[in-house]
Design a protein around this nucleic acid. Structure first.
Length: 802
RNA sequence: GCCUCGGUGGCGGAACUGGUAGACGCGUUGGACUCAAAAUCCAAUUGUAGCAAUACAGUGAGAGUUCGAGUCUCUCCCGAGGCACCA
């Protein structure tokens, strides 16, 4: 038999599968249960890297396996095709982003084919196709009509040199990624999705999901719910009040001053009362400047300025207390104002020491520390609440102070406006007539098609390049018919990827983003794997969109993903993350060329559990070992004899392997499945001959991992019919795994002292007799008193002797 | 600081509901084949001592529960990830 030629074999079967559309999935198949296995769709960067391979190949193993186990498996792929790199290429090299993107996708499709994945390519979705983004726009309008979209002035990252708005990921340590100038904040009118409306449900509904704790915890941290109270403090000589948020209303008696964030409205509103207005203005300026860089990585030195002439009243004690501005209080969190309790809060403590403010202990023995949420202890110096339990006091004192229990979140509303060209046009129209204002594009005018432009640079005000395209901007108002202007911002690409998994269920639907039938048929996703970097953004955003669609009756479940897991990471051979600058990139194409796609797949499966938090360094020697294994499997083909009867030893090895492979793929620990295959092959190699059935069974078990060689073994060596991944998975014959004899482990005081072969199924007292009769054991229990004997059926005897 | 997940040979990793720690692979060492090398095959490979049988130690550290702990409980150390002047 010839040396295994992966180049010919892989090409041959890839074109066979393509021509026969072997992996197209129908919505229903008789007697088969539907299963939806999802992987994150790639950005069409132009090249598939090892990370993509890992992300696609291992779930493909699972998809193929599940198909063989009789499931009707939806395993789709597409492209997350809008986004910055295309636009950067356009600006830098003058290439049309559309051309760039579509050419990249063409090339990446051939790369994906070279992996031997079983993706259903007929269901491909591409987010920059108008047929797709028409529905992205439709979803935007649905949210808008149902009061889930805001249009308001918010801060954007602004690079004064590039004159452009930057996404958060383009801001590196407060500097512009491209030109390194210091990034400023610019106030712009922008669109936001009201994800904060869903904050509680996004946390609480996690309880019902069977997800790894780590992912749930990340989402909860990101949302950052904090329970406490809002309390109003009146101001001496003013109608206005300072409202604070606190998690520790039980410490109200310990409030000795108050702090407003420099950006707080009251600082301006109380201007006429403030006698040191100049100093306050100066402080505001200084902190605004340092907000971007210093505030994040500064020392914890607290600064602030007292508002001279302003005094607040502690609602519980009636005491008059001073008010400060200080930038250790953030405008964007809570109410932007705090009641300071220096005795029980580290930051307030530091500030009070610096400015000589009174520190009054109100919780016994509970000194200032950051863990303000713990709140255990008893009250003191708190009037008639002395001795009260901290937890109980929270409710009592909040009520007494006229406050209300409330919750605050770290999560902000989701700003979806991007002042960019290569994205989904936001389907809104601005009419000058105040009676109209912002008007949604009527549904029958969707999609708002992204026009071609000549110039991809934003204008000097930082508006999208679309704003320069007059025939795009100018449009009659859908309400009054007068001249109006189109919105020129485009949508954050996370909006596009927040619903793509729904489109896979019904990808060519022209009357809805997907029909209710199809959604019901496939959703929720049974298994979703992806990168941990998407835990807080993409996964959270898509859960929100899905919940909103659920509330509006467009989808049938409140959650989109039954199981979500994060895949592990493949590092470069040097143990670092693969990167051009480190020169440690492994190019999958050249591995496919030299060792074959099957080798690559098997290697990635073998490297370690798919869903662990670990990162695995690429080992060039180890992958050659995997290739050798493939050669050995192929060589076994020479032992196949048509007339040969199945031998017991080979069958036993095959069924032990079947058990191992089955269990390992079920748990997505494909590494132990590969180990089982190797163990099996080690035994098969010792056989003189193998039957067709035996080699065929090996081919079937190889098929999820290494579909090409498996198909070749199946079709060419065994001369069997059909696509191997569709052939029913072999049934386990437990009987074959039964042994006549077992190795009985004999312990004395928990230490292994002897091992003897004994017939299976013997009674406990017989096993104990055998143990006591062992010469080695006798030596160990000689002269000792046997206190107890534990017999574990069919496994071991432990003699306790003192 | 808070939350989550981890820590097992030279390396990646196995070990089911507590029951032989180190499966499988890589690497290393020795051997066969060869004029030689590559490839292939065979054998060994947790450490210490011993020719060996074997003995002792051993899953980050320490305690505990148990006949028996990598696995369960507690305390601590280290690493990774998420959040963080968040009131």
């Amino acid at each position: 038999m010839d040396r295994y030629n992966h180049r010919d074999v892989e090409k041959k079967w890839q074109s066979y599968w393509r021509e026969h559309q072997s992996y197209a999935v129908s919505d229903q198949q008789d007697g088969k249960e539907n299963y939806y296995q999802l992987v994150e769709f790639p950005y069409p960067s132009g090249n598939l890297h090892v990370g993509h391979w890992y992300a696609f190949a291992v779930p493909d193993i699972r998809a193929r396996y599940l198909r063989a186990r009789g499931k009707n498996v939806l395993f789709p792929i597409g492209f997350d095709a809008f986004g910055l790199p295309a636009e950067n290429a356009a600006i830098k090299h003058g290439i049309n982003p559309r051309t760039w993107t579509y050419e990249n996708m063409d090339y990446m499709r051939t790369q994906i084919d070279s992996m031997g994945t079983s993706f259903d390519r007929s269901r491909e979705v591409v987010t920059c196709d108008p047929e797709y983004y028409r529905w992205t726009q439709w979803i935007f309008l649905e949210l808008y009509k149902n009061n889930l979209v805001n249009y308001s002035t918010t801060e954007a990252n602004w690079c004064p040199k590039c004159k452009t708005v930057l996404a958060n990921e383009q801001v590196i340590d407060g500097h512009c990624e491209r030109c390194d100038s210091v990034v400023e904040k610019k106030q712009m009118k922008q669109w936001q999705f009201r994800i904060t409306e869903y904050a509680d449900r996004l946390i609480d509904d996690l309880d019902d999901l069977d997800w790894p704790e780590e992912i749930k915890a990340s989402q909860k941290n990101w949302i950052g719910r904090s329970e406490g109270a809002e309390i109003d403090f009146s101001i001496v000589g003013s109608e206005r009040k300072i409202t604070v948020f606190t998690t520790r209303p039980d410490t109200l008696y310990g409030v000795t001053y108050m702090v407003l964030a420099p950006e707080h409205q009251l600082v301006t509103e109380l201007a006429e009362m403030i006698s040191n207005a100049d100093a306050v203005e100066e402080y505001k300026k200084v902190s605004a400047k340092k907000s971007e860089i210093e505030r994040t990585n500064n020392t914890k030195e607290k600064t602030g300025v007292r508002l001279e002439g302003v005094e607040a009243i502690n609602p519980i004690s009636g005491e008059k207390i001073p008010v400060f501005v200080a930038d250790y209080v953030l405008a964007g969190y809570g109410t932007g104002a705090v009641m300071a309790v220096p005795a029980h809060d580290e930051r307030d403590h530091a500030f009070a020491r610096k400015y000589n403010l009174p520190i009054r202990e109100v919780i016994e023995g509970n000194v200032a520390h950051a863990d303000v949420n713990s709140g255990v202890g008893r009250l003191c110096n708190s009037g008639d609440c002395d001795g009260m339990d901290s937890q109980a006091a929270k409710v009592v004192l909040t009520e007494k102070a006229g406050g209300r229990m409330t919750k605050t979140y770290r999560l902000r509303d989701w700003g979806v406006s991007r002042q960019r060209y290569w994205g989904v046009p936001i389907p809104m129209i601005h009419c000058d007539d105040p009676a109209c204002g912002t008007v949604p594009v009527p549904e029958d005018q969707l999609p708002v098609v992204l026009p071609d432009v000549e110039d991809y640079l934003p204008n000097d005000e930082g508006q999208s390049p679309l704003s320069k395209k007059e025939d795009f901007v100018k449009v009659p108002c859908p309400q009054c018919g007068k001249d109006a202007k189109r919105e020129t911002d485009t949508l954050d690409t996370f909006v596009c990827s927040s619903w793509y998994f729904l489109r896979y269920s019904d990808p060519r639907n022209e009357t809805a983003f997907a029909s209710e039938d199809k959604i019901k048929n496939w959703m929720p996703v049974d298994h979703y794997s992806g990168g941990s970097e998407h835990t807080t953004m993409h996964v959270l955003y898509s859960r929100f969109i899905h919940k909103a669609l659920y509330d509006l009756g467009h989808v049938t479940t409140p959650e989109p993903y039954r199981v979500r897991m994060n895949r592990s990471l493949i590092l470069g051979p040097d143990g670092n993350k693969m990167s051009k600058s480190k020169g440690n990139i492994i190019d999958p194409d050249s591995i496919v060329e030299s060792l074959g796609a099957d080798t690559m797949r098997l290697y990635l499966a073998f490297i370690g559990p798919f869903n662990s938090v670990s990162a695995y360094p690429w080992n060039p020697e180890s992958i050659i070992g995997v290739r050798k294994f493939i050669e050995r499997v192929w060589k076994l083909g020479a032992k196949v004899e048509k007339s040969h009867d199945d031998t017991k030893e080979a069958d036993k090895a095959l069924h032990a392997c079947l058990k191992g492979v089955t269990e390992s793929i079920d748990a997505l620990k494909c590494n132990t499945g590969v180990a089982a295959l190797m163990t099996c092959v080690n035994v098969l190699e010792k056989q003189q001959q193998l039957s067709v059935a035996q080699y065929g069974m090996l081919a079937q078990m190889m098929a999820p991992y290494a579909p090409h060689i498996a198909q070749e073994m199946w079709s060419e060596v065994c001369e069997e019919e059909g696509v191997i991944s569709d052939v029913t998975w072999p049934a386990l014959e437990e009987g074959l795994l039964m042994e006549d004899q077992i190795e009985l482990v004999i312990q004395v005081n928990g230490k292994v002292r002897d091992k003897v072969m004994v017939d299976v199924g013997q009674a406990d007292d017989v096993l104990e007799r055998i143990a006591r009769d062992s010469e080695k054991i006798k030596k160990h229990i000689e002269g000792k008193e046997v206190r107890k004997v534990i017999v574990i059926k069919g496994r071991m005897v432990n003699i306790v002797a003192v």
